[in-house]
Nucleic acid binder design. Structure first.
Lengths: 99, 99
DNA sequence: CATACTGTTCGTAAATTTGCGAACAAAGAT
DNA sequence: ATCTTTGTTCGCAAATTTACGAACAGTATG
């Protein structure tokens, strides 16, 4: 009878990032922000067929997962990729998926 | 006033795969199966500190997302990566994350 | 100061996810 | 034919996710 192994920290971080990417709207936002530089919440709201409160929630999730960050630029908020963590996510997925 | 754009099929597929990868146990399983060849449910059950019914559910999710497949090899079931879809996932994430 | 604009937070509802143990099904072994 | 092994399915509960509109807060503008 062996001691049960548990998942590693790396696996947990991969899962955390993957979970944040697990919704089409959030993929859309990440794709936009990783390709071009930054954007405002309003720009997204114009293009996405969801309530702005719902969008705000998705952005919050991405923020909490560490994938994006928001910078106040009154009266708007400029969202950008969190470069450091995006880089970590790239590395983790590269290793994980063998790409 | 412009027609609202919606997320693309590609984004939906990325989100679908990401969602399936969004749990440490499922990352663990995928990592195992993508590195080595295949394994049995029992092998996983021995190492993971979860009920076998819970493991079965996780495997079902990975199956439904198309990332793994199970082959009956009585009395056990041999799980392998679904190579075709795994390859698609690799490609999608490569493009998506720029890696 | 009142108004408009931008975006978050709150309250709510419905759906989904996660997890467990018990019951079940299929196939081999005794 | 019964028992054992392997893994799924069922039934349930708790937590989380998704979504919306209304209300709110902060900052500019008239």
């Amino acid at each position: 009878m062996s001691v049960k192994l548990v998942t590693t920290d790396k696996q947990k971080r991969i899962a955390r990032y993957a979970k944040a990417m697990g919704h089409p709207v959030r993929v859309y936002v990440l794709e936009l922000l990783s390709n071009q530089s930054c954007c405002y919440s309003g720009d997204l709201s114009d293009e996405l067929p969801i309530a702005k409160s719902t969008l705000s929630q998705h952005l919050k999730e991405l923020k909490e997962a560490g994938l994006i960050q928001g910078e106040i630029e009154s009266p708007r908020i400029k969202y950008c990729i969190n470069k450091e963590n995006w880089k970590e996510a790239q590395l983790l997925f590269k290793q994980f998926m063998g790409i």
